[in-house]
Write a protein that binds this DNA or RNA. Sequence first.
DNA 1: TTGCCTTTGAGTCACTTTGACACTAAGATG
DNA 2: CATCTTAGTGTCAAAGTGACTCAAAGGCAA
Lengths: 228, 228
Amino acid sequence: MSNATASSIETPTLAVSTVIFTLRPNQDGCLQLATPLVRRIRAPFEGQWALPGGPLQANEDLASSASHTLRDTTGLEPRYLEQLYAFGSVDRAGGKLAERVVSIVYWALVGADEAGRAIDSENVQWFFADDLPSLAFDHNEIVHYALGRLRNKLEYSRIAHVFLSETFTLAQLREVYEAVLGRELDPGNFRRMVESSGTVEETGERLAGTRHRPPKLYRATAQAGETK
Amino acid sequence: MSNATASSIETPTLAVSTVIFTLRPNQDGCLQLATPLVRRIRAPFEGQWALPGGPLQANEDLASSASHTLRDTTGLEPRYLEQLYAFGSVDRAGGKLAERVVSIVYWALVGADEAGRAIDSENVQWFFADDLPSLAFDHNEIVHYALGRLRNKLEYSRIAHVFLSETFTLAQLREVYEAVLGRELDPGNFRRMVESSGTVEETGERLAGTRHRPPKLYRATAQAGETK
DNA sequence: TTGCCTTTGAGTCACTTTGACACTAAGATG
DNA sequence: CATCTTAGTGTCAAAGTGACTCAAAGGCAA
C-alpha cells in the first residue's frame, strides 16, 4: 500500500458538472426533454459540446457549485437538484488529457415555463436529450445515465410538477409524464394514480379558454423531505 | 464568479471510503448486519472509529480504490461493490480540519461465510451496524445512508444471495432478508416471491443433517448486468 | 339555436399482486 | 410410534392495475 503524503502533487482534480433538464416543445408541438450544453473552447475536445461545469472551488459545497454553473450557463434557477454519480475512471478523457479529472455530476430540473428565458448563445445551446451530438469526454454516457435516473425517479417519486408552474391541470401533468417516459398514458388511470398519491390538491379554480370542458386546476401539496 | 486557475493550490483533496457490510450472528444467534471500522491514529478525531478508506491514488480507479481498502482492512474480497455518494460539504470535519476533503464513498457486501476469516486487530474492529459508537467526521450519517440504500436495494434487486455461499436453502435466504430488513417474513409468501423472480434455481440436492424435513438447495441464476 | 367536436372526470370490469393463514410432507428425537 | 419442527403447497380476500365505457361541459360551425 503506497503512502499518501508522497503523491499529493499528482492528486486528481475535482470538477462538478450538471446535467440540466427541461421540457420544450419540439417541431410537432409535443413536449420533449432538452438539455443545455456548452462548447469547449480549448483542448481536449475543442469545439465539441460538453456538460456545463467547472473545477470545485475550495469554499463551495458540491450542490451549490452545481447550481452555480446552472445559473451561469442558463441564467435560470434549479427547481430540483440531486447528485447523480461521481465519474472518475483513470482514462475518462480517452487519453487526450494529461491531468486526471474526477467529476461529481449533479442533475437538475428547470421549469418549462422558465425555459423560454434561458440564455442561448454561440457557446451555450439547448439540445433535445434523445438527439445529442457526440459529446466531449464520457458525457454522452453521463447524460444517458441521468436520463435513466430521471425516468426512474418520476415513477416512484413525485417530481414531475417541478417542470410546471404553480398551478396546473392533470392533463398538463400527464403530458410531463408522457414526455419524460416517452409513452402515452391512459388519462383515467393517470387521474386515479395522481389523486390517490396525495401529491396534488385542487385549487378550486378551473382553466378557462380551452375549446372543451374546463379542467380543474391543481397545485402540489407541501411535501416533507426533498433531495438525496 | 471566481477564477479557477487562481485557486488550484487550495483544491480539495479526494478520498475514497467504503462502508462494508456482512452478516454475523449476534449473542442471540440471529444474523445481524456488521461493519468493520478503523481507529484513527492521528488528529482530528484521534482514537475514534472511522470508515476504512484513504486518499485516491492518481493511477487508481474509484471502484478499485474502494475494493483495495476493503482488502487491506479486512483481508476479504468484496462480493458486491457500488458507489454510494460523494460527501463534500465544506464543514464536514466539523471545523477540526484545515484541509478540505471530499470523500467518494462506496458500499460493499462480503459473504457471511467468509466473514469469519476477517482481520480483527486493535485498530480494526467489527461493529453491529445498528449499534455503532460515535464515529469520526460525518461517518455516522454515511453508514446510515448506506444502510438505507442496502435495504432499498434488497427489495427491488436481488443481491441478498451474495451474503451466502454458492448453494443455500430458501430459509437461509429468508434469514438474510429478515436480518437486513429487520422484520420477519412469511415463509410461504417469501418462497412464492423468490420462485417467481427467476433469480434462483434448484441444484437438485437437499441439505441433510437438519432435525426436520430436509430443505432443497438452490443457487443463484446467472444474471446479466450488475453494478451501478 | 342546434348539433358536433373535444377533453374532462367518473365509473366498471377483469386480471394480477400481496398479505394472512391453513394444511400436508418429511425428516429427527425420545 | 407419537411428537416436534421446518419444508413446501394451497387458499382466500383485499388491494392494485390496465383497458375500457360513458355522461358532463365547454367551444365552434352550420
